[in-house]
């Protein structure tokens, strides 16, 4: 299915548009990549910081429920920013990306991370009592935070490894 999608995309006019955009505007690729990195900064400063707070590792004076209300828009805009800056590279070379196992891993982790993050935000907003650090529910929140933190760091690291997939998966 992935290869069919890649084939369809590689014949779509949007592929030519993206490829010529990236190659004809000087400096566009590093500018888009920097926007992608700044979007990751927003992810780090929102959900990753909340995960670290729940795990008791960072910003102890901040209230978790208040952090969720204040920082969840940053997570959303970080995802929107990363998607809108990254999509051009996929559209320009769909076969290179869709056939890459690290790219597939990145997007599987990303889908899980996004679902978990917004479920966590919803849960945290609806039931403020979870954040009573002595409650048994708080242990569940900690497990949640650990998985979320691992997923987001995994997505960021996998993103960088896309260009080096041959170290992990030798093309056979």
């Amino acid at each position: 299915m992935m290869s069919e999608l890649a084939d369809w995309l590689s014949n779509a006019p949007v592929r030519d548009f993206s490829a010529s955009l990236l190659s004809s505007i000087p400096g566009l690729p590093p500018v888009l990549q920097t926007i992608h990195l700044l979007s990751i900064v927003a992810i780090m400063a929102s959900i990753v910081m909340i995960d670290l707070r729940v795990l008791g590792l960072a910003v102890p004076s901040q209230d978790i429920g208040e952090m969720i209300t204040r920082l969840s828009p940053w997570t959303l805009w970080g995802i929107v920013g990363a998607a809108s800056s990254g999509v051009w590279f996929i559209l320009a070379r769909p076969n290179r990306y869709f056939s890459n196992p690290v790219f597939q891993i990145k997007f599987a982790l990303l889908a899980l991370a996004i679902i978990l993050t917004f479920a966590f935000y919803r849960w945290g907003r609806n039931q403020a009592s979870i954040w009573d650090e002595s409650s048994s529910r708080f242990s569940l929140a900690k497990a949640y935070a650990f998985v979320s933190l691992s997923l987001w760091l995994g997505v960021v690291m996998a993103g960088r490894w896309i260009a080096y997939s041959e170290y992990l998966f030798w093309p056979g």
């Binding site: 990195l37 400063a45 760091l153 960021v156 690291m157 996998a158 960088r160 080096y164 992990l168």
Partner: peptide, 25 residues
Amino acid sequence: ATWWFPLIESLHVVSITLMLGAILM
């Protein structure tokens, strides 16, 4: 020459984005 480079580079990305996240806040 080895997978150390992408590992180090990906840790660089994680650390710079976390650093700028904390600074930005």
